[in-house]
Amino acid sequence: MTALGFLYPGHSAEDDYPRIEQLLASDIRVDLVHTDAGQGALRLDGLREIGSPERLASGVEELRLAGAEAVVWASTSGSFVHGWEGAHEQVRALARTAGMPASSTSFAFVHAVRELDARRVAVAATYPDDVADLFAGFLRAAGVEVVSVRSAGGVTAAETAGWGAKEVLALAQEGDHAGADAVLLPDTGLHTAAHLTLLEKELAKPVLTANQVTVWEALRLVDRRVNAPRLGALFTREPIVQV
């Protein structure tokens, strides 16, 4: 049994995680601990606060006692708002506190894009414009070419938690770009695990969503690969051989 640990801010789309565990259909356990999400508003000051070392440390002991082998901070905006170097320091601090490999959803997107060998990506975000632009900047700092950024204008996690397949598909379609190799939906407050097959069928390209890549990142940290087609192209990709 491989145990994966996740620190998830608040309560919105957390039920994606047991769904993903089920779809993995393997000897993998997904353990999730909720952290304080504050007011849930998508403002830069609040987003920086939810990813503070103190808030992340508060959930680590529970994951350690559960036997987690790696931990991922399951927030995209709560990591990239610190910038490229700040997000690295956030993860390093989390790894020191947890005593195990650690990452965040922001880095999960970077690693997943590289896994798919997607040279150009489109971003379809629920965030306000300034936050969406910061995510695009984070990706560019990682060497990813961002060809378009679509912002839904700052929908709160409480609102996006109620979105179904129709709304998620509309966001992805509006954010797609003809020149993009993949479309990224960076909100962990958005239910997407049940819609990945639909999204990739309709867009005819890989779609990377926050909770999907977060679990994939935890598997990457413990050097596990699982073939799970219902979780999208990312979970069927053979390793890229570097030459």
Rank of each mutant, 00 (worst) to 15 (best):
S79K: 00
G99M: 08
V33D: 11
A141F: 07
L184G: 07
A194F: 09
L203D: 03
Q22E: 15
V113Y: 02
V215N: 04
E217T: 03
T76Y: 00
V215I: 14
A102I: 01
E69G: 05
S103I: 08
G162R: 03
L24W: 13
L7S: 06
H195G: 03
G5I: 00
A165H: 01
S75N: 03
V149K: 04
A142E: 12
S12K: 06
G10T: 00
L44F: 10
D36C: 07
A194C: 03
T105R: 01
G137M: 03
S75K: 00
T126Q: 01
A152W: 09
V131L: 02
E145Q: 14
V241G: 02
R96H: 13
G46M: 01
R55E: 04
E89A: 13
A161D: 12
G78R: 00
R140E: 15
V81F: 12
P128H: 02
Y17E: 11
F109M: 05
H177Y: 03
S77K: 01
G86S: 05
R64Q: 15
P229D: 10
A194L: 10
T126E: 01
G153V: 01
L190V: 06
E61F: 12
E62V: 14
S52Q: 03
E145H: 13
S103K: 02
V183E: 06
I240D: 06
T2K: 12
A142T: 04
V91Q: 08
R150T: 12
E200H: 05
L42V: 14
A41F: 14
H191C: 11
P186W: 09
S79A: 05
A218C: 01
L203F: 14
V168A: 04
A124R: 04
L139D: 12
A152C: 05
L23V: 11
D117V: 09
V241H: 14
V222E: 08
L7M: 10
P53H: 10
A108I: 08
E202W: 07
A95I: 05
A165D: 11
F109T: 04
H82K: 14
L190W: 12
E159R: 14
A178E: 15
H191Y: 13
R119S: 14
A87T: 13
P128S: 01
G86H: 07
W84P: 06
V213L: 01
R119T: 08
V243Q: 13
L134I: 10
R230C: 10
T236R: 15
D187V: 09
V121I: 14
D117I: 01
V222I: 11
L4R: 00
L190I: 08
L199I: 08
A210D: 11
L196K: 11
A161T: 10
R64L: 07
S52V: 06
R19L: 15
D15P: 00
L203E: 03
E167C: 08
G179N: 10
R29Y: 07
A66I: 03
H191A: 15
T192M: 06
H191L: 12
M1L: 09
L32Q: 10
D36V: 06
A98N: 07
A218Q: 05
P9M: 11
T76I: 01
M100T: 06
R19I: 14
G78L: 00
F135R: 05
